[in-house]
Design a protein around this nucleic acid. Structure first.
Lengths: 136, 136
DNA sequence: GTATTGACTTGGACTAGGTCCATCGTAGGA
DNA sequence: TCCTACGATGGACCTAGTCCAAGTCAATAC
């Protein structure tokens, strides 16, 4: 994660305690926190951090391509720090657990030209849904 | 669409002017309206219809499997009446246009057992993103 | 055709998630 | 160490959606 902080500094990011804490909270595998969860965890370390700062910082991290937004349920957006490697999401309909998964092949190729309506495609997002072992 | 109304009546739905109008507004191909758009179009025909009724009716149609909810942008959910035939969505990043598309093969098969973490899979939702001819 | 009744509708209050903005604070260069 | 522009703050505001008590009416029974 310190390499993330280095990359951000290299891009002219002014390093503040708030930004550092938000970036640190988002470290790890299979991390998909809502903005409120990020705020709660950040506030545990830096009690005076504000909601607006968390939203600002998350927005910047997304704009810089370091974090991706995932909205799986139409409720709160979740923030996924695993943006360096393409992946999709596997979601339990029972408990809401989310895992990063890596399907074989490029999902884009499944869409034949006749179904592209002249679009220039850039990405395909896939959400697999099912029941995890605990909820089965 | 009248066949939909028949199906609903057959399932014990009490037919009211409000429900009929909401169902009629959702008729057609490539229809992906937000609840507010449904309300606006329904109100054009039945001015005294209320927001709560539109949400209730949409929720019932979803529960009955006649309409599917799609949340592509983390903003308002959209309602897709084309629930009788499996399909995915193609979304223009420029203007927000949504089209129904039919990829080849079943997206579920792209996820190998080693990437399923013991889940029992039920569905895979795919959102293709790109630029439509007008926005290119 | 009328009475009955429980399902449906209404509008307004309420909530969650998120954005905006004026003001204050501070990181980092000179 | 001083400056200043960039970042943080908190509180108002907004949008999408939910909830509820009270009123209405579709469908059944007669």
């Amino acid at each position: 994660m310190s390499d993330l902080l280095e990359r951000l500094r290299g891009r002219g990011w002014r390093m503040t305690a708030q930004r550092r804490v938000v970036a640190e909270v988002l470290d790890g595998e299979h991390v998909h926190l809502t903005a409120d969860e990020v705020l709660a965890r950040a506030a545990a370390r830096l009690p005076e951090i504000s909601r607006a700062t968390v939203y600002n910082t998350l927005g910047e991290l997304v704009a810089l391509g370091e974090v991706t937004e995932v909205s799986t349920d139409g409720r709160a957006k979740r923030y996924d720090p695993n943006a360096h490697r393409p992946h999709q999401h596997l979601l339990c309909s029972g408990c809401g657990t989310i895992r990063d998964v890596h399907p074989t092949g490029d999902p884009l190729t499944a869409l034949p030209p006749s179904e592209r309506y002249g679009f220039t495609l850039t990405t395909a997002e896939v959400t697999y849904r099912g029941l995890c072992p605990d909820c089965t």
